[in-house]
Design a protein around this nucleic acid. Structure first.
Lengths: 222, 222
DNA sequence: ACCTGAACACCGTTCAAGT
DNA sequence: ACCTGAACACCGTTCAAGT
């Protein structure tokens, strides 16, 4: 885990792990069948860090789903690009199952149909992991041949400078071929990762909520 | 390209490509700076296969966005797991820029705000590539040490058998720990890739459309 | 400008042999 | 049951040397 956090998934080779443990690479195969096994175990360990945001509450289901997504993203963000290992696999560890169990029951509590809840879990998971993976790539720092992860040196100054650079690039594209791209250089480079993540979350939750038929409003609430 | 299509991105090593071209791996570095360059060129070549679904039409923008997504998915599906190379990078090839230009103008034609259009392109791209990547992993076939890609041998019988297997697995989970998972075994294993893709697309387009304030309906149309 | 052979510094995994 | 050294069959990239 320390090796992963410091240098990322690519540095997590059987040889480096073995070295860290003071042994040779072949010895690891007494404990795991493949490298994949080792990474899957590490991933479930990390998913276990997630604290689910309370009991399903039908009145707050949309906020609960969002809070779940935010926490998931934060945890992946803390562990380099481990999330890459979770893309395209239904995680089946104990911690992952608890997570899915919780998310399903929140959606059901919200009045979402079983089919939409099932597929909704899929698409929310896809969104969270794909976003976290993209963001993990931004954190990658090459320094003297070594690769380092760092979530917090993206200070506002650096981000602003980077966005300005990209905006300039958009603005200098040939306006006859890409008129919209050129004119949208501003919006295209607006917003940090947090804002973008919230936007996508809002789109997804609204889309899922739109499948729920509004219950008749009570004459007097309370 | 034939090597990619037949054996996938992992088989696309500098050595194999060189062999295919009747030369040695070092010779490739006279034409590309890194392997990444080669893969990026291949990716833009493939994005070029996409036929954009006509001029932006404000009355059909939602259907146009969906059709664009379907075609993108289909093209990635035809080329093994090349889409993996596009995750987490803003593709900047000529063909990719045209694609973004078109999608932005469709969203704007639909009355979506510039900011939502910009972020909407992001999230739609994320959805398409992440889905296509997940699906590409399903197509992977190991045969005698060799890896093969095949989109069409997922016949309905095989799919049904696979879904039944997963459903049985869900149903045999401990019901006291995972009550919802067990009771939802049915919905969780319902639907093929096409249905799931359409569902996610519907959710996203509804979510984006929900940001557009409905224009006053004309008293008499036509 | 383009190509080459040979090498460097790595990989995941296997396997016979040990304790 | 667990561990080991050595090897196998690979990687991407570099570099001096060639045309």
């Amino acid at each position: 885990l320390p090796l992963l956090d410091a240098e990322g998934l690519d540095a997590l080779t059987m040889r480096r792990v073995a070295e860290e443990l003071g042994t040779g690479p072949a010895s690891l195969y007494a404990h795991v069948a493949h490298k994949e096994d080792l990474v899957a175990a590490l991933l479930d360990r990390i998913i276990g860090e997630l604290e689910l945001p309370g009991e399903p509450d039908s009145k707050r289901w949309q906020e609960q789903v969002k809070e779940f997504a935010r926490r998931s993203r934060a945890i992946y963000g803390r562990h380099a690009d481990i999330v890459r290992a979770s893309i395209g696999s239904i995680p089946s560890g104990d911690n992952a199952l608890h997570m899915i169990e919780w998310l399903l029951s929140v959606l059901l509590a919200g009045g979402v149909s079983p089919q939409v809840a099932a597929w909704g879990v899929d698409i929310l998971g896809l969104y969270i992991t794909a976003t976290a993976y993209e963001e993990s790539l931004e954190e990658l720092q090459h320094a003297g041949g070594e690769v380092h992860w760092s979530r917090h040196d993206r200070d506002p100054t650096t981000l602003a400078a980077f966005q300005e650079e990209v905006r300039d690039w958009f603005e200098t594209l040939p306006a006859d071929r890409y008129p919209t791209l050129v004119s949208m250089a501003g919006p295209l480079t607006t917003g940090d990762d947090d804002e973008r993540f919230e936007f996508g979350l809002e789109v997804l939750v609204r889309g899922i909520a739109s499948t729920v038929s509004e219950p008749r409003r009570k004459r007097r609430s309370r």
